[in-house]
Simulated assay, not measured.
Amino acid sequence: MNHQPSDTTTTNSFLPMVSVVVPIYNGETDLPELINCFTSQTYPKERVEYLLVDNNSSDRTLIFIEKAAVTSPITIRPLSENQIQSSYAARNTGIRAAVGDIVVFTDADCRPQTQWLNALIQPFVNQQVVMVAGEIIALPGKNLLEKHADRQETLSQKHTLAHRFCPYGQTANLAIRRTAFTQAGLFRPHLNTGGDADICWRILRSNIGSLEFAPDAIVQHRHRASLKELASQWRRYGRSNRYLHELHGVDLMPDISLKDVGYRLARWLVKEIPRDSAKAIAGHATLVDLFNTPISLFTARARADGQRNAKLPEEAKTIEWL
């Protein structure tokens, strides 16, 4: 995998047709800003279609998409996936309808910057490249949990691209050649987490081509703002690891015991709080520094719980094909 900066100037000689696929569940409030980001893209509008796939939403998502398809200056194609409640099933619906040579994925709560598509598509000028991952950075955090996640760069692709088993890109910012799907298959439609790693690994291990990183192809994403949302996020990471263990043989993460938690909390109270409080008084530390340990322990426990309690459903092993 290469980590070369992408040329953000798309040349006239390389303008492949691009299909952007977005699975959406109850995304009515996110859609106006998302579509504004799409409208602001510098990639030629006539070379991009946006396939917005409603995944059985209970709000007005589908109505909004259908209206936007009529009123927007860009090509929006409203689609529905109502049979399977899964973002991967919705992405498969988009892939099947796509006409582009390159299929790009992002999410409804992401905010692509204006040069996003230019930078994400450019590495495909090399025919050996079959996947390109762009960078994911946080929208400005407001509370302690968001600022902690920002400090840890929780969403950054650098973590998944450096995965010790095999690199992969997250579907919040990922582009794949359409031909790769004909050889490696589509997403597993009944999987509810881990599908981005699974499809990247199937493509890479099929020796179809390489994965590149385009650091200038940036989307912004919100961090979780409450303990409930944060716990759900990290339990999902744990479930993902269990599923990928069963599908690909990935090592399970070591559990974190209550004894470990107790020891680290005691060390935090006795050693870290006095140290970081003194730094804070001197202006060299923040609340994020003061509460780094308990928040990190909270997420580690949630991830361990998710991994421990997960079991891959038999139907989730199924791969769909074009």
Rank of each mutant, 00 (worst) to 15 (best):
F181K: 03
P23S: 09
F187I: 03
A231C: 08
D107Q: 10
V130P: 01
L322P: 15
S72Y: 11
E46L: 00
I24V: 12
Q41M: 11
N26K: 07
C166L: 14
Y43G: 01
M1A: 09
D216N: 15
N2T: 07
L117E: 03
P73M: 08
N56S: 15
L269I: 05
Y237L: 12
S232C: 11
Y168I: 02
R235H: 07
G100S: 08
Y168E: 00
Y263K: 08
V18F: 08
K259Q: 11
S57K: 07
A175C: 07
Q157A: 13
Q220N: 04
R303T: 11
R301H: 09
P254I: 05
N118T: 06
D107I: 01
R177N: 02
Q170A: 10
Y243C: 04
Q83W: 03
A162D: 13
S86P: 00
E320I: 02
G169K: 06
Q115L: 14
A285S: 08
R178L: 14
T299Y: 04
T93G: 00
R60D: 12
A300F: 00
R177D: 04
L252A: 07
N173E: 09
H223F: 14
R111K: 08
N309M: 14
D255F: 06
M1F: 13
S19Y: 02
I102T: 01
Q183K: 13
R267W: 13
V132L: 01
P215D: 11
E66T: 08
